[in-house]
Design a protein around this nucleic acid. Structure first.
Lengths: 170, 170
DNA sequence: AAGGATCGTCTGTGCAGCACCAACTATTTA
DNA sequence: TAAATAGTTGGTGCTGCACAGACGATCCTT
């Protein structure tokens, strides 16, 4: 017995090279937890999680073309149309023709939109308390700031396949 | 004037009370960006994002019942079955009967599982570089640590509706 | 002026990730 | 012995997307 598993039974954290620390799965996990709660909290406000993401991006980014929005959200631009239709139907967002290029729409948050967004954020306090309960206010603010900065950059999807050395033996 | 909304027109960042900073939308946004990349990176390894989440939870948590896993992942327990079937089919995970309660399965990461997980994390380096490009290594480690700690706690879904004061007047 | 590219729109199709329900077995607890 | 619990199986259906095709409007070339 104990043949091939020299893993000592049950412990929590096998020594992990910090350079291999990946936030992806954690991000996924926490986002799910948050989204499940957001859905029910946001419903009475007539919003869904993706609407909140769009509003947040618009608040951070000012006037943006739908194309740009598709790039930022990394969604197909045909789906952006419907998303913006939802928001515009409730006057949370405004589509204006760009004066420089009349093909483009400049999408912008309205006052109503900003207000609704802030209401939503307020309503989400409880949800966040549950999901981020392990973090104190300072840590939450740090987290927020890191996420905000990361989300503020647009990255192309390249992602060349990398073969990692040092893993394959045994 | 400037009653409750001091925001004018179009600028990027209206003054936002730090206590209203919500990470939910950012979490959602970044998780999506990450997931889109993960899918293609993970595919050659025979994994999908949710598999990675499960493996990560198992590495962090040691032996867990499927019930507990459902609670942690906040997924319906019937879907946990299929998820674990996938993982067990590739021997990344082991279901053993619990000695104390023979109804239960104790799910545990195998050596193969730990190896595959670490390979996957390694392969995701490029994806993370793209998504978290705005953060330097120190900040990424901070982010990882915050996410890890937040994900380590299990929170019940209560989320009482809260009406925020100071928002409702026109 | 003419041709091609680009932006947004519309419609339609299809898939993946889930939740939810119902029924069943094996086991534990009351 | 009866009732509750853990896991499994199978089925249904919703939602959020991606993707493709076609179209008008508007650029940008040449």
């Amino acid at each position: 017995m104990f043949r091939q598993l020299g893993r000592l039974g049950h412990m929590s954290a096998p020594p992990l090279d910090p350079s291999e620390h990946r936030s992806g799965a954690l991000l996924d996990h926490l986002a799910r937890r948050m989204r499940l709660r957001s859905e029910t909290v946001l419903a009475p406000l007539g919003l869904r999680p993706r609407h909140l993401v769009a509003l947040t991006v618009l608040r951070a980014g000012g006037g943006t073309s739908q194309q740009a929005l598709a790039t930022i959200l990394e969604m197909d631009s045909t789906n952006i149309v419907g998303l913006l239709n939802d928001l515009e139907a409730e006057q949370l967002v405004e589509r204006r023709r760009s004066p420089e290029d009349r093909r483009r729409h400049v999408v912008e948050l309205t006052q109503d939109g900003a207000k609704r967004l802030s209401e939503a954020e307020c309503a989400l306090a409880g949800a966040e308390d549950e999901v981020l309960g392990a973090l104190d206010p300072n840590e939450r603010e740090t987290l927020y700031e890191l996420l905000r900065r990361a989300a503020a950059t647009t990255s192309p999807i390249n992602c060349t396949e990398v073969i990692c050395a040092g893993d394959e033996p045994l």
